[in-house]
Design a protein around this nucleic acid. Structure first.
Lengths: 220, 220
DNA sequence: CGAGTGATTGACTTAGATCAATGACCGTGG
DNA sequence: CCACGGTCATTGATCTAAGTCAATCACTCG
């Protein structure tokens, strides 16, 4: 399969379609910057291929990764409602983006309430997802967090989690070092809670129903 | 001052105003539930006073705190775009809410594109803020995280951070135990990086400019 | 005044970060 | 075609930041 190409999520499609001609495409080399914190916010973007990182520098001079946009993601949606970008966008890999100028998009949204509602819906889902990811970080120890994250990936049917990226990416996503993740996965596998067949795929195994009363299966 | 009352943030206002009569008010006793995961999504809410917790149960039966809505916050915005609520809402304290029925609101949004855009803007800002909070969790050790969080609270002018709630709340917000936070604050104060006058207020002190080249001021 | 909550500090323990090494797997260029 | 350099996956050893348990004090509220 081609490494990193996906059709844009419907919202990116709809936005681009709505403004039609005013919408251009941009190609970035790895490391190239799309915009910088403080630049006037002239456009939002839809990632077509590659990955684009959003970074903010703190006052202390640190560089913090805010987001890693993948194909299908919308980028800098907040630019629609702000004067300037609030963070840097740098291509993590070679990337292709659709450029959606804010003035044209604002017009389109004003003209088409359904489009505006669609955008609001997309954003509302992002808020939900982000809250979920934030809550995930509170789970401890690592075992719980990993299981919860896998369950999320697998969906409510409780079957097989297919990791979107590498294990290292997954580790970063859930706030663990990759070593900690490897170890936790190994322990879970040993405990029979998960099974790994092909790489990138993890099957969750019901732990014989988590009965409330029963401290521990065997030993301590 | 009255303990927990604030005028609703403008967006909550605007939404409520837009649908006018269809909008009622609801009062919750502490512990009372507003809706449950899976209930049909009939309304979104604006918190007028008190605090309302959003909880999700994981498949493993754990209860995870997703959000703690405070006066001025909008609650369950995603209900506008979904069939059912995706989490429980329980009053953490006695609370008063404005109830905004989704059908009426959907109509209003369709009729008034500016309102829809306003909602999208609010949500976009929430996305931004949540990404920031998520990134904050990656800062380590605790000292860095606390300083960054305080800087955020103080705003770009780099002056005084006024904590919205208790220190315990703040600790939970940034993913530390309250003990760890107290110790970190004490250490920072000792190190002269912060000063505490009244409770709930922390002044940040520039550490003689963090010059790029200079490993450490003294010792080590 | 006693109960409940927040703030604070001490002592102890540990989960997970850090540092380090190894093997598998590519893609790539000579 | 193969050797080399890079990334990912994995595991071991070690260390420490921060969690847990515990006690105390100040404060507010019936």
């Amino acid at each position: 399969m081609p490494p990193e190409t996906t059709e844009p999520a419907s919202m990116a499609h709809r936005l681009a379609a709505a403004i039609g001609a005013a919408c251009t495409t941009s190609r970035l080399a790895p490391g190239e910057s799309l915009f910088r914190q403080g630049d006037p916010a002239r456009a939002i973007f839809a990632v077509l291929s590659g990955r684009v990182s959003l970074l903010r520098h703190t006052s202390a001079g640190h560089r913090v990764l805010l987001h890693n946009a993948r194909p299908g993601d919308l980028l800098a949606e907040a630019a629609l409602f702000a004067e300037a970008y609030h963070c840097d966008a740098i291509a993590a890999t070679a990337a292709e983006l659709r450029v959606i100028p804010t003035p044209a998009l604002r017009d389109a949204l004003r003209r088409d309430p359904a489009l505006a509602m669609g955008l609001a819906g997309t954003l509302a889902h992002q808020v939900q997802a982000l809250r979920g990811r934030l809550a995930l970080r509170d789970l401890r120890p690592a075992r719980e967090r990993v299981l919860a994250a896998l369950a999320l990936l697998a969906g409510p049917e409780q079957g097989v989690a297919r990791l979107p990226g590498t294990l290292m990416d997954f580790a970063a996503e859930i706030g663990l070092t990759h070593e900690a993740l490897y170890r936790t996965l190994a322990a879970l596998e040993q405990a029979g809670r998960i099974a790994r067949t092909e790489t990138g795929t993890i099957r969750l195994i019901q732990s014989g129903r988590a009965s409330p009363r029963r401290p521990s299966p065997q030993g301590l």
